[in-house]
Design a protein around this nucleic acid. Structure first.
Lengths: 343, 343
DNA sequence: CTGAAAGCGCTAACAC
DNA sequence: GTGTTAGCGCTTTCAG
């Protein structure tokens, strides 16, 4: 292992100490700017270090201190796929996390740990050197996470707050989001609202329940034929929409459980000669940046990833620091754009 | 620092050795499945380790071995912005890198190191513990990278191959890509082809030069007014297109230097009542996955990120391994979709 | 204020 | 085959 910037530069603290005519400990303290060391000696050593381009071996330091200043981010990949990050929402959240982490002086390790395969029972995953982990999305591993939380607490999760949950989460108000989206469509006069997505994940399930609530409140029928479940494939949203179309079930609007699905749904409708919003209205979820620039621009439920990323990091560092942290539900609102408005 | 899965589980190799009635070295070897150790002792120890849920302290191991099995990925952020990854191409490339890295047993560290600020002269960045680094995009730091390469060789870069370059790159054939895109538009009968993007980065500059070549070959005029330079903002593509429109300069097609720009350009045109491809043809660059699902689907220059990611990782690990590695230019081709075809 | 010394948990000569 | 031993480079008591 070479530290970045090092070729065979082997300058270590002992060397520096020799050059400065002091001991290792003095150098160590001086480099930490410790008050213990005479200001002159301190500056002398610091200058010397800079001059000779000395760099602290962080690996040794971290080992000694038993800390790493790195946080691992794990993305529960769907079954077989690795890093199934086709969905920009996760990416944008990742970006926000990354920024917050940097601000707090931590690095971010994107680990290949597969949370499905890894044996979490009892002790949680191994292999990684980090101070804590952030899990993005509960996918279908809520139970495993709960198990893991029994023995490992330096963990926060992006997702829904669930009954009997033992880990700390940050996430949007998915039930509300589902209601807002559906209510909006109902207000626009749509009555046959199809819903496309995978309601097997906790977040999506809540969105679906919000949809049901809104329909029930409006006295509208909940037709199971209008629920189209996507798989984890790249073009799932497209295929699902095609299935909906070929099923012959009448519908006048689609509530897509993510913007990625919404875009592909619009595309599939287009391929069938149906235009949005003229023939079918569409509402998405997440408010990823592209929704604004899509044609038509997409009505969607906003999730604040900046805030989300910041909170995830804050809570995790607090936990690591020995403090308590409670789960947060972020404010959630609807952003109305063109895809759901009949002119 | 706690290892993932550990609470206060302090089981270390010495403990295991005591329990097994052997020495630390035997345990160490057994856990590495070394042939040196009697198969029975070996299995006994392995069973014991599993039973007591022992996990190797990787930090100590890595420290001892002077390796980290992690590769840092650095993304030269534009000037002030951090992790300015609005562009999905980089994300998709990141995904490909991540997968290759995992397959090779390495983790991926997304570092907050700012390559602009970091003093690369002489020694390169410090602070990170990794076996090597992958830089995604040369942005405007070619010179710094070159400097850095003098003293640090465990580095590969996604980008263009440049004169006098001392580091190893993997990237598409940007000159060809620019030509292909432009030639295609010319073949479709367009003559006033605007070009939108930031040609201050090496890759984009080559694409621009390809554009010039194609125009020259076709005997078409190169009008500077048709070159609209974007800044690093999120909506740069949108704003740039607006500027083009309000400039009054006549144009019948746009060559966008990235798909992200292309999408926003289409959106801006749309906002002005111009539709694509009927009124204006658009060609993008990168072939990000969404181009296929955009409305209209976008003609674009394909860059193979799977292959790119794989090669980056392969070359870097080779270099770390002491072998030589040469730069690669990936095959580059045009994917024709609807945004550039008049029906 | 500064130094000497111990030791983090592991691996790998080198012995036996 | 297995054990002994010596560190990796750093931080930090504990003594001066």
């Amino acid at each position: 292992m070479k530290e970045i910037g090092e070729k065979k530069a082997v300058l270590k603290m002992a060397d520096l100490a020799k050059m400065a005519g002091v001991s290792k400990s003095t150098v160590s303290r001086a480099l930490q700017n410790s008050e213990l060391i005479n200001i002159e000696t301190r500056e002398m050593i610091q200058r010397l270090a800079k001059l000779h381009n000395y760099r602290l071996n962080t690996q040794a330091r971290n080992f000694r201190l038993k800390e790493s200043l790195t946080i691992a981010v794990l993305i529960p990949s769907a079954e077989n796929a690795k890093w199934q990050i086709s969905d920009s929402f996760f990416i944008e959240l990742l970006g926000a996390i990354s920024v917050s982490l940097m601000e707090r002086g931590h690095d971010m390790l994107l680990s290949g740990l597969n949370l499905h395969q890894e044996d979490l029972s009892g002790m949680g995953p191994s292999k990684i050197n980090c101070d804590g982990i952030i899990v993005i999305g509960q996918a279908d591993i809520h139970e495993r996470l709960n198990l893991m939380a029994q023995t490992y607490d330096s963990m926060v999760v992006w997702g829904a707050q669930l009954d009997g949950q033992r880990y700390c989460t940050v996430g949007g108000d998915n039930l509300l989001g589902g209601r807002l989206a559906t209510q909006h469509l109902i207000e626009q006069g749509f009555k046959r609202i199809a819903i496309i997505g995978d309601h097997h994940t906790p977040e999506a399930l809540l969105r679906y329940q919000g949809y049901e609530q809104a329909l029930a409140e409006a006295g509208l029928e909940i037709d199971p034929a209008l629920l189209i479940v996507t798989d984890g494939q790249r073009d799932a949203g497209y295929q699902a929409t095609l299935r909906l179309l070929s099923s012959g079930v009448p519908f006048d609007a689609i509530f897509a459980l993510s913007d990625a699905i919404a875009m592909k749904a619009i595309n599939a409708l287009d391929a069938h000669g149906l235009s949005v919003p003229e023939n079918v209205a569409v509402v998405g979820y997440d408010d990823i940046s592209l929704t604004r620039y899509y044609t038509p621009s997409i009505t969607t439920v906003h999730q604040d990833r900046e805030l989300g990323g910041r909170l995830l990091v804050e809570k995790l560092l607090n936990i690591i620091d020995g403090q308590a942290a409670t789960s947060s539900v972020l404010p959630t609102n609807l952003v109305v754009r063109n895809s759901s408005i009949r002119h």
